[in-house]
Write a protein that binds this DNA or RNA. Structure first.
Length: 593
RNA sequence: GCCGGCGUAGCUCAAUGGUAGAGCAACCGCCUUGUAAGCGGUAGGUUAUGAGUUCGAUUCUCAUCGUCGGCUCCA
């Protein structure tokens, strides 16, 4: 059973779903002309969509929440009744959204949660207190099972009816509900913690990156500190790729319209691409993907079956149109650098190639401190290109690799792109949140379109398998996730500044400079805080900058040519020889801790 | 793009229909310091941009831009 199904059957799910009804009751009481839409339980809580005569304010939420507590205390009983479509339509005659749902239930279509239903399903209503809702349940038996001190309304947001931007905009109230007050407290703490770790906030505090009105939305400026982190990531990435049989390639930021016609992007991806640029009467497009260029490199010469597999890797910067409302810090931008690669292999190499790719992917992610993975295998959709045998072989290879490497996974049957099946890997961060990073996708479309081939043992042309993969996803997104995972306190190997040397008084600065010079020559990123401030102030500033090592130098240290090490954790290791610290730091950096 | 909120100094935030103030940061000076803020001073703003209402707008209205929470989509 998937996590989702398990949740749907849990007590907590019923509590949240019921809380949504109680909330609707309170809202309808407050706005008798309200039209109600849908109100499901979701991860960590619930929501309900309403069509209301005016916009809700935070004050309204408080009133509604207060009223919910009163209603809960009235021990409202949830009673279910099945009825005919005609009866239901009469009952909800003033509720257009409900009528639409009833139509759907009657004829098949989609249910309350948007899942397709093949055939007419029984129509049920639930009544609690003065509120009756079209609903298939399940609910708690009565509202005393909802803990009035474990619910909280969180925010209001606009939401289209059925998620369709051509339909009316409704007001959605999000709430959370738990079994105990402590669980609620814990959840609110997690929300607060997430706010503190927000990469946009930390990005500003640590001067990592910014965006700028004049530059444009969704375009990231990497400041020196962020740039250093990125440089370290990329250096490691390059080394690992070269060591693992990749060829590094570099390709342009734009290409002629004909290239994108060949690749098919102008057919199926045009909405995500920017308007063409006119160059001497020819149309060029900024690249939304790197594949056509890698395919063009592949095509630049003949390939023998002996040359395969070939792996072209590139940190390729792409541009995709994103609607202004969806942009979000580093996580959703308009220009970003994918850590992209395309593998070309023979059919007989394909399973090993997938094994390699998944294994390499996990090793890379582990190097950055991620240890919890969840994979999603998406298989053949109804509308697709390629031969069914190819799909089956590819899906089998993907699934076998997941099993062999013991990655927990769920299958999204029919969820693949039209051009091939894929594995998406999500990592869990320090707060237990999931982020999608890696993706390993087969592509049965572009090899055809570009008509790529290799010469087999038989002297004939054969079509290779092509796999598209990104491990970190994009540098921007990955950086955002790293910032939140570490709350800005990067491991030493990634820290923009690794060592802060803190002379206690002016007379120690000269020795501090000497030590700094030695460390810099050994490859450490070091600064001397020579300001005339108190040592305490310098420590405080270094802590706020999240510098992993602080070295205090006073009379005693200078006398013995030592440094007193204080770690970012607050741990004070006392004085040690200048060389001893260097060895320690270099070791920890090499170990990526 | 759409619905709603927000936009005041580098940062975090005050204030008012009569042209703005604090803390931190910056700069200058004093202090020469022992594991998370020593003290004093100086400077810094066309209150996002544009238009309108008004004797007067930073405050009210509208538009634009940006941003935040969502819808949709995804790296």
């Amino acid at each position: 059973m998937s996590q989702k199904e398990e949740y749907a059957q849990s007590e907590l799910f019923r509590i949240r779903h019921s809380a949504a009804h109680i909330m609707a009751e309170a809202v309808v009481e407050m706005f008798p002309t309200a039209k109600v839409a849908i109100g499901p339980a979701i991860a960590d809580g619930f929501y309900y969509d309403f069509d209301l005569p005016r916009s809700l304010t935070p004050d309204d939420l408080e009133l509604i929440e207060k009223r919910m507590r009163e209603l809960i205390k009235q021990k409202e009983v949830f009673t279910m009744r099945e009825l005919s479509a005609a009866e239901a339509k009469e009952l909800f005659k003033d509720q257009p959204y409900k009528l639409e749902l009833i139509e759907g239930l009657e004829h098949g279509g989609t249910d309350e949660e948007g899942n397709p239903t093949d055939q007419p399903v029984p129509i049920t209503i639930y009544t609690s207190g003065n509120f009756t809702d079209l609903c298939r349940g399940p609910h708690v038996e009565n509202s005393s099972q909802i803990n009035p001190h474990a619910i909280k309304l969180l925010n209001v947001a606009g939401a289209y009816w059925r998620g369709d931007e051509n339909r009316p905009m409704l007001q959605r109230i999000y709430g959370t509900a738990w079994q105990s007050k402590d669980e609620l407290k814990d959840y609110l703490w997690r929300l607060e913690e997430a706010r503190k770790r927000d990469h946009r906030k930390i990005g500003k505090e640590l001067d990592l990156f910014s965006t700028n009105d004049e530059v444009g939305q969704g375009l990231i400026l990497w400041h020196p500190n962020g740039g250093m982190v990125r440089y370290q990531i990329e250096k490691f990435w390059d080394e690992q790729h070269v060591r693992n049989g990749y060829d590094l390639v570099y390709t342009p930021h734009m290409g002629k319209a004909s290239l994108w016609e060949t690749s098919g992007h102008l057919g199926f991806y045009k909405d995500d691409m920017y308007s063409p640029i006119d160059v001497e009467g020819q149309e060029y497009y900024l690249k939304p993907m790197n594949c056509p260029f890698h395919l063009s490199i592949y095509k630049s010469q003949l390939h023998s079956y002996r040359d395969l597999p070939l792996r072209y890797a590139e940190k390729g910067t792409v541009y995709r149109y994103e609607r202004s409302g969806v942009l979000h810090g580093l996580l959703r931008v308009r220009g970003f650098t994918q850590d992209d690669a395309h593998h070309f292999c023979r059919p007989d190499q394909m399973p090993d190639e997938i094994d390699f790719t998944l294994d390499f992917s996990l090793k890379m992610l582990r190097a950055f401190g991620f240890t919890n993975f969840q994979a999603y295998l998406s298989t053949m959709p109804e509308k697709c290109v390629g031969e069914p045998e190819q799909w089956q072989a590819a899906e089998a290879a993907l699934e076998d690799s997941l099993k062999r490497l013991e990655v927990p996974y769920e299958v999204d049957a029919g969820g693949g792109a039209f051009y091939g099946p894929k594995i998406d890997i999500k990592v869990k961060d320090a707060l237990g949140r999931e982020w999608q990073l890696s993706t390993i996708q087969f592509d049965f479309n572009e090899p055809e379109r570009f008509d790529i081939s290799y010469i087999g043992e038989d002297g004939q042309q054969h079509r290779p398998y092509m796999v598209h993969r990104a491990l970190l996803g994009s540098m921007e997104r990955f950086f955002g996730v790293l910032i939140e995972h570490y709350a800005g306190a990067f491991p030493a190997w990634l820290s923009p500044m690794q060592v802060a040397i803190i002379p206690i008084a002016d007379r120690h600065v000269e020795f501090a400079d000497e030590v700094a010079k030695q460390y810099k020559e050994a490859g450490l990123r070091v600064k001397v805080d020579a300001r005339s401030d108190r040592m305490n102030a310098k420590i405080r500033d270094a802590q706020k900058e999240k510098i992993p090592y602080m070295l205090v130098i006073g009379d005693r240290e200078m006398e013995d040519r030592q440094v007193a090490l204080r770690r970012r954790s607050g741990e004070n290791l006392g004085a040690m020889d200048v060389d001893a610290f260097l060895a320690l730091a270099l070791q920890e950096i090499a170990d990526k801790i």
